[in-house]
Amino acid sequence: MPKAAAIQPNEWATVYDTFEPFEIGALNRVVLDYAHVELALANRWYRRTALGKAVAGLGFGFAIFSLCAAVALGILMLTGAVDNEALLPVAWAGAGLSACAVLGFFVPWLLTPYRQWDRTLNGITVMIVVIATLSLGAALFRTWESAPNAVLAAPFLLLTAFAVGTIVVHVRFRVTEKPPTVDVASLSPSDIEVLRKVRRRALKILRSRNVVAYKDFAGYDASSFDTASDGVPSDATGGQA
Rank of each mutant, 00 (worst) to 15 (best):
R174H: 09
F217R: 04
F156D: 09
E85P: 08
K3S: 07
L140C: 10
V182W: 06
F162Y: 10
V129H: 12
E85T: 13
A63K: 03
P9A: 05
P89G: 05
H170S: 06
A72T: 12
A70Q: 10
W45T: 06
L58W: 12
A99S: 10
V211E: 03
I192M: 13
T166W: 09
D118G: 00
E177S: 12
D226P: 00
F19I: 00
R174F: 03
W45L: 12
E85N: 12
A40F: 01
I128S: 08
G219A: 06
N43A: 15
A147V: 14
S66T: 03
H170D: 02
Y220L: 01
G52K: 13
A35E: 02
Y220D: 02
R142E: 03
L76Y: 07
P89W: 12
V102Y: 01
E11T: 14
D33W: 04
A42V: 00
S224A: 11
L187W: 04
N84Y: 11
V90Q: 12
S66H: 01
K3P: 00
G25K: 05
L58Y: 12
G80M: 12
R200H: 06
V107I: 14
G94M: 07
D221A: 15
E193L: 13
V130G: 03
A101R: 07
T237M: 09
D17P: 00
P108N: 06
V151S: 11
L32W: 11
A163L: 09
F106R: 01
V164M: 08
F173I: 01
D216H: 06
A69Y: 11
Y46K: 15
L88N: 05
S190P: 01
G61A: 14
M127I: 09
T181E: 15
G238D: 02
G123D: 15
R115S: 11
W144S: 04
A69W: 11
G96H: 01
V15L: 14
D221P: 00
M77G: 05
N122F: 15
V55L: 15
L88E: 10
R199I: 05
A69T: 10
E193C: 04
K215Q: 09
L140S: 03
P9L: 04
A213G: 00
A147R: 05
G165W: 04
N28A: 01
A93H: 00
A54K: 14
F173C: 10
A5N: 07
I75R: 12
A13E: 02
F225D: 00
A54S: 15
G104E: 03
A163K: 09
P180S: 07
V198M: 00
N84R: 10
S186D: 04
R201E: 01
W144E: 02
P179Q: 04
S224V: 02
T181Q: 13
V232L: 01
A42N: 13
V31Q: 04
D221L: 05
L73P: 05
R142F: 11
R47A: 15
A56I: 00
W92P: 00
K3A: 09
L88Q: 15
T120F: 10
S135H: 06
K197A: 08
D191N: 13
L157V: 05
L110N: 06
T237R: 08
S186T: 14
A101L: 07
L78V: 11
A147L: 12
F105V: 14
M77F: 14
A222R: 10
N210T: 02
A138G: 13
F162Q: 00
Y46V: 12
E193K: 10
